[in-house]
Nucleic acid binder design. Sequence first.
DNA 1: TGTAAATTTGTAATCGATTACAAATTTGAT
DNA 2: ATCAAATTTGTAATCGATTACAAATTTACA
Lengths: 335, 335
Amino acid sequence: MANIKEVASLAGVSVATVSRYFSAPEKVSKKNTDKVMKAIEQLNYKPNLLARNFTQSRSYSILVLAPLGNPFLLDVIQGIQEIARIKGYTVLLVDALESKDEESKCYGMLETRLVEGIIDFKVQKRLDKKNGTRIDNIVTLCDYVENNPSPVVTVDDVKAAEKLVDYLVSLGHRHIGCLTGLDFIHATVHRKLGYQNALQKAGIPLSDKLIIKGDFSVTSGLNAAKEFINMQPRPTAIFSMSDKMAIGIIQGLKAEGLRIPEDISVVGFDDIEFAKYCEPPLTTIRQPAKELGSSAMKLLCNLIDGKYEPESVLRPYFLPTDLIVRGSTAAVKSS
Amino acid sequence: MANIKEVASLAGVSVATVSRYFSAPEKVSKKNTDKVMKAIEQLNYKPNLLARNFTQSRSYSILVLAPLGNPFLLDVIQGIQEIARIKGYTVLLVDALESKDEESKCYGMLETRLVEGIIDFKVQKRLDKKNGTRIDNIVTLCDYVENNPSPVVTVDDVKAAEKLVDYLVSLGHRHIGCLTGLDFIHATVHRKLGYQNALQKAGIPLSDKLIIKGDFSVTSGLNAAKEFINMQPRPTAIFSMSDKMAIGIIQGLKAEGLRIPEDISVVGFDDIEFAKYCEPPLTTIRQPAKELGSSAMKLLCNLIDGKYEPESVLRPYFLPTDLIVRGSTAAVKSS
DNA sequence: TGTAAATTTGTAATCGATTACAAATTTGAT
DNA sequence: ATCAAATTTGTAATCGATTACAAATTTACA
């Protein structure tokens, strides 16, 4: 494989000229440009980017730590990719469900220079290491906590959940079940808060008996369905913290002969592609997936470029959500 | 950020010793190991992997070119990741639906040393460049063509489709519609072949009128549904080349008041997670997604390590598929 | 044409590791 | 205690680019 020196010698110029041919072609005379071009062509030369990255001390790569298995993520990742491409970054992807060990290895890639930034789908607790401050060039996506150690792009889960449950309340529901997500994800906490806010506003007493712990999987929805059915009194509506679980719930309820939405209304969260192809189509909260991804990536690029005062970006950057009303919800039966 | 020289000088040893501390710790005396450890600790030293990669002329990265948007891919990618982690590679992911330009840039990453191998979800036509031979360290996944220029891991789409349509025939169907995928994907060609084989075996005349062109999206399924309904004679069963399209078809048929499977049977291909949560649950072909990913990655690792004779791996590596019978198929109505 | 300014070019240092080879040290056997 | 073998260590070259700086060349204008 030819290197820059060979190109230079074949072209009869110095290596600096060849290097400039790539980095600042306007500074190379027409005559030499031609010579260099020919030599490159003849030797089929491709610059060794490992060498370039090394000298520039840049990897032009960023890392995305995402819990694959969530179909909602595909769109988010596409949003990330879109900006990455424009800005000249390549995207490394790691499944975030790996071990803690694996995770810290990923964070280590910042220090070993393999990546210039990280987009993580969950808040890191232990970001503050030795020096007690936030670590640079990390953006938290779709998760958020008070005093977040890194900049955040997400939706306002509290408001979104509140909006959704407000809607159920407006349909006359007063016994509203809740299926939560993984509890180390802060979105779970926030959506629960929104759920409770809505109930309180409506003067409905809160009850932990109406809340079941889920894990965002279809299966946990299926299992929860049975529990909801056996509740006394049985809820007339169920708020599921993800569409996937809502689909499981609907399956489980139908298996027991219940009709949706006539007997029980079910709502999800995310608006994944299949939400509208459910039977019945799912009432849910739409998150602007692609925008979440692209906004996070833009933010990360600015962090890498040092365009921000660190403090100025620690306030969460909330994107708007939409309530999508479909067929899985109906007014409560007057009993 | 401390470098190896500073560590060496603080520890009172040579850089070679520090380097060996990482690469061959058994060759460093206990005394020096301690000294180096302390110096590393004290300086919070992390080796600059950009430098290491450069000197070793290795990136320890591989690229996956995948059409995101296919939920089936998530599992495949997890399979890839699993092996990648074990073998010490990181995975770059690029959405394969990008422009040709983007695509060749990705292939260029092999020559610029940024990645050591590529897993591509489609066969490359122009792999044979100047030297007319196959390009090393590329594995084609889930796509296949005669005289493939690179090693292939996939399922036998012909056999799988044939198995599926055999099943429809066994239910008494003789008018079987077909919704194809993108026609530059060879799997489309092969599945069509399997479809035709099954019909021929059963002595059913082939007719292009029963075949509609799709693009693997739900929408194309929705659109096709209307066309199938208006066919004369109307098919009693439809073979869709992906689950997503099948879901669209089912939606479209139901919207027109048809019952599945009583009026029309529908089958898909892939067995994505939502196939079993459809209404009715989808009869389909299960592809071993995770195994496809892990097998491809293992193969790629061996290619990178030069363990194979090039010719020995150009025969496609077929993984087995299963026919999954669910509720979307039924015996044809005796008319 | 002469000279200053602007442009283009080349030399050589540099990035931070790895590693071949030689030198130094330790170990082990007699 | 001696010497050979084995182990450990250090010196310095190397990977392939970028880039500061100086030198050479070209351009512009009086």
